[in-house]
Design a protein around this nucleic acid. Structure first.
Lengths: 250, 250
DNA sequence: CGCTGAGTTGAAGTATTTCAAAAGCTGTGG
DNA sequence: CCACAGCTTTTGAAATACTTCAACTCAGCG
């Protein structure tokens, strides 16, 4: 069995994820556009399989989803994570077949809607349309940043970038200079995200903790001790990256 | 200088690319939506730089574009290619800063439009909106396939997949069982696309030609001698992949 | 004819994987 | 409360895939 789930990640103590990456008014727009077909899911639940017919669109209100694809040999690549505020439209070019597997990493919930109805809503609501466009752009931008590092970056750079991306998307550390957040995944899954074996993820992160760049406790409770150092390893400028991958709150 | 261009690729003899990946009626829709601000470009021209402000959207009518990103050390990753019929919206989450560098690989032309006007057109035209949605889904799907292989695939698999993707997008070989097409890039650029050094791209492709899977002549005139074999190396099913990454012609 | 850029090949170096084993945590049942 | 099972993390050692460096060939072009 090649599931992405991990047992102890339902409600995790310590650091909690800060809410949506999208603005509050938008959130209202989206909620009303979606109606209120709220689907709850428990941790580890496979919501959709690569290649499966579906025709549904999801608006995540709570919890984390992993969007992944696998090779025949079972190797899995996590294409992206969806967190509260994100829209997941798994359709491929034919409009109904899912291009990806969607799995819940934590318990949570999502508003669900047939993609046709969703498209009509977007078409009919100019604000919603603009919002969606920005959130699409943000998603593309962060995936492009990751592709760059997947193709040309070292292990250190990939892990550092991934952590910074999490930090920015979760909205952590705008107040403090040592951001702190939790990600509900194990090293194996982080490896599936950045294209490394879990062993190498471990070594890479240990090196960073030994160099006082990170502090990792419990299970992936992360404190970035040296954001500037981490950004250098990742090869990013924190402020520009934030503008690039974080949809502006309207 | 770290340009993507290659000298001899303006108008290439031999095999020619078959036109758009998108339907004919759609093409009309798009052309009229865009108006007729047609911009020509010569091979090698940098059309847009990563991080630059722009706020423009492009509809490619002729020629190839490379969309890329670079690390500080100069290493470049090609995120995608744009071919006739493709829409390029380089904006990142802030709406105006370009997330990518856009460079012309051949001479060609594109219809250009301010993104705001473009958004309004889409908003006001339901057919166009649907079309765009499918073409977005196709783009996402093919990038996800590539990310999977970038993260978890071998060199052989990455190269094989890239070639199959080109073949499908160019619409080659629907009639014959040994598809034939030309790609206007050198091995270095193919390496920047699949995350390998040019040397390793060379070795990998030579192995494939020696095994009678491919035949490569001139400069990247490619004939797939054994599509089934190539598909196995790439780890794809040709028909499903076509449905996944090729927007259906309406 | 000599130059330039692309492709090819070999040899050495390196980053990362794989294999294997042990240590740490968490929850469970006796 | 302890022992045990199951999973994650950690570490070492060997194997491997890919890169880098360097040299050479080849084709097109002034």
């Amino acid at each position: 069995m090649n599931t992405l789930s991990w047992k102890g990640n339902s409600v995790h103590g310590g650091i909690r994820s800060v809410p949506p990456a999208v603005g509050a008014r938008l959130k209202q727009d989206l909620r009303s556009a979606f109606g209120d077909r709220l689907q709850h899911f428990e941790s580890g639940r496979q919501i959709l399989l690569e290649g499966e017919k579906s025709g549904l669109v999801f608006y995540v209100t709570e919890g984390w989803l992993a969007l992944s694809k696998s090779l025949q040999n079972g190797q899995t690549q996590i294409i992206d994570f969806a967190i509260p505020g994100d829209i997941v439209d798994p359709a491929s070019a034919d409009g109904t077949t899912s291009a990806i597997t969607v799995e819940a990493l934590t318990a949570g919930a999502a508003l669900v809607m047939p993609s046709e109805k969703w498209e009509r809503s977007v078409q009919g609501n100019s604000d919603l349309h603009k919002t969606l466009h920005k959130s699409d752009a943000a998603r593309e931008a962060r995936r492009a940043e990751r592709m760059l590092r997947l193709g040309k970056g070292t292990a250190e750079m990939r892990v550092a970038y991934a952590l910074i991306e999490f930090c920015i998307r979760l909205g952590s550390g705008r107040d403090t200079d040592q951001p702190t957040f939790h990600i509900p995944i194990v090293q194996q899954q982080l490896g599936d995200f950045v294209g490394l074996s879990s062993v190498h993820v471990c070594r890479t992160m240990r090196r960073m903790t030994r160099n006082n760049i990170l502090e990792i406790t419990d299970h992936m409770d992360i404190k970035i001790l040296d954001p500037q150092g981490l950004a250098e390893i990742a090869g990013v400028d924190l402020e520009s990256l934030r503008a690039e991958i974080l949809p502006k709150v309207v």
